[in-house]
């Protein structure tokens, strides 16, 4: 292993951590930007996606099971998200701190339910045969550096999902409505946009993407009842650093935080890198309190 491959390997690890963070944070950023809702149960959507993938593999076998699992995880968590929006989030509109507490309650219930159904230890998902290989780059300066197939898959998945969400927002009618509501809710409402439906769609889309993240995560780590908890705080930091409801900001922030954590963990330790990360976020906020990409607005009060 030369110096270059070591650095490249580290960078690659950072990017693969960043892809999962990106998938986890995407839904948070969208619903936070649009509805000012903090969904503390978002981590449990990851968990749910992981368990749904596990179940699909148990039903459809190793080869096709994972592909089915991706679809089931997306649809299942999106439906659950829609249900959550209709029954709970909608009632708390305009009280962001209260949504935070209520969804935390939901996350506790979901965790305990997972513990009762699947046991506290967690379940393993084995990667399908078509992902278990490695990509090696022999014959170049990168000799000895190889990319595990699952990690490469996660990065590709994150890129595809990000591209799809960006396309939806930029090119479809739903995207037009999302942008309108994001920019000015009362005016969009007055012009006839069904803001409730837009909220519902965005929230369900966000939880669905989190389900996909959980599905991807299950390839590299066992699915446990508390798997969501370990990612949610970082996902929130990504949202804060990225800026409200901005895809570009979320992408850049996820890359920054992913690569930062991976590098800091090598230089120091896991725990110290957490402390460093938080310090850096607080210092960052001194310069850009509204995140990397902030929407220009003349409004005095945040709505």
């Amino acid at each position: 292993m030369s110096e270059t491959t070591l650095v490249a390997g580290q960078l690659f690890n950072g990017i693969s951590v960043a892809s999962i963070l990106l998938l986890a944070a995407l839904g948070l950023a969208l619903s936070f930007g649009l509805m000012r809702v903090i969904n503390m149960a978002h981590g449990e959507m990851l968990m749910m996606g992981g368990y749904l993938t596990y179940l699909s593999i148990a039903v459809f076998g190793k080869g096709a099971g994972f592909a089915v699992g991706l679809v089931v995880a997306f649809v299942g968590t999106a439906l659950f998200g829609a249900l959550l929006e209709i029954t709970l989030i909608r009632r708390l509109y305009g009280r962001p701190l209260d949504t935070l507490l209520a969804t935390w309650g939901v996350s506790l219930i979901l965790q305990q339910a997972a513990r009762s159904i699947f046991g506290p230890i967690g379940v393993e998902v084995t990667a399908p045969p078509w992902l278990s290989g490695t990509l090696s780059l022999g014959g170049t300066v990168m000799t000895g550096f190889s990319i595990p197939g699952v990690r490469a898959f996660i990065i590709v998945l994150a890129a595809v999902v990000l591209g799809a969400v960006a396309l939806i927002i930029a090119r479809t009618r739903l995207g037009l409505l999302i942008r309108a509501v994001h920019e000015n809710r009362p005016i969009a409402d007055a012009l006839g946009a069904n803001t409730r439906l837009v909220d519902l769609a965005v929230f369900a889309l966000g939880t669905g993407v989190a389900g996909l993240a959980g599905s991807a995560l299950s390839l590299i780590a066992p699915v446990t009842p508390t798997v969501g908890q370990s990612y949610i705080v970082y996902a929130f930091l990504v949202v804060i650093v990225g800026g409200l409801g901005s895809l570009t900001g979320t992408l850049v922030a996820a890359l920054l935080i992913g690569v930062f954590s991976a590098t800091a963990q090598i230089a120091t330790s896991q725990s110290f890198s957490d402390v460093l990360l938080l310090l850096c976020v607080i210092i960052f906020m001194q310069f850009r309190p509204r995140g990397i990409v902030s929407q220009g607005s003349r409004a005095l009060e945040e709505t």
């Binding site: 709970l88 009632r91 708390l92 507490l101 506790l108 219930i109």
Partner: peptide, 14 residues
């Protein structure tokens, strides 16, 4: 306990 405290979070807020 976790079910109860979870329900308390939801109920007290709503």
């Amino acid at each position: 306990w976790l079910h109860v405290v979870g329900a308390v979070f939801v109920l007290v807020v709503t």
